[in-house]
Amino acid sequence: MVKVIRSTILPAPVEAVWDVLRDFNGHSAWHPIVTSSQIERGLPSDKVGCIRKFKLEDGSELREQLLALSDADLAYSYCLLETPVPLFNYVSHVRLIPVTDTDHTFWHWEGSFDTLPEKRDAMIDLVGHDIYEAGFNAIRSAMKLEG
Results as ranks from 00 to 15, higher is better:
L67A: 01
W30T: 07
E118I: 13
I51S: 00
M143N: 10
C50S: 04
E118M: 15
I124E: 13
N89Y: 08
V20W: 01
M143R: 14
D103Q: 11
M143Y: 08
L74P: 02
K55M: 10
G147P: 10
R22H: 09
Y132M: 12
F136T: 09
F88E: 01
S141E: 15
S45Y: 06
S60P: 04
A16V: 13
K53S: 15
P11W: 02
E15S: 11
E15M: 05
T100A: 12
D73N: 09
G128Q: 10
H93V: 04
V17W: 09
I139A: 10
T35F: 02
N25P: 11
F88W: 06
G26E: 00
V127F: 03
P98F: 08
E61V: 12
V4C: 13
K3R: 15
L116E: 14
L62I: 04
I9Y: 06
H27G: 01
S45D: 12
E64W: 04
G147K: 09
M123G: 07
T35G: 02
D103I: 00
M1C: 05
D58W: 08
A142R: 14
I139K: 02
V127C: 09
K47F: 09
T102H: 11
W107F: 15
A68W: 04
N25W: 01
V99Q: 09
R52S: 03
R120W: 05
P13H: 07
R140I: 07
Q65G: 04
V127Q: 07
E118Y: 12
L10C: 14
D46Y: 08
L96T: 06
L66C: 06
D23S: 04
K119I: 00
S141N: 15
G49D: 03
P117W: 01
E15R: 08
G128W: 06
M123V: 09
I5A: 13
T102P: 04
S60A: 11
P32L: 10
V91N: 02
L62G: 00
C50D: 02
V17I: 13
L56C: 04
V91P: 07
E64H: 04
L116W: 10
A122S: 11
T35M: 03
L74E: 02
H108M: 08
K144Q: 14
S37E: 12
F88R: 11
H27C: 00
K144A: 14
N89L: 04
T35H: 04
T83R: 04
T100Q: 13
D125N: 14
L145W: 15
R52N: 02
M1W: 01
V94G: 03
R6A: 11
S28H: 13
E40V: 00
F24R: 01
S37L: 13
G26T: 00
W30Y: 11
S7T: 13
G42R: 12
K53R: 15
L67C: 09
P86N: 05
D46N: 15
W107Q: 07
V34Y: 00
P13E: 07
D73W: 03
R41P: 01
T105A: 08
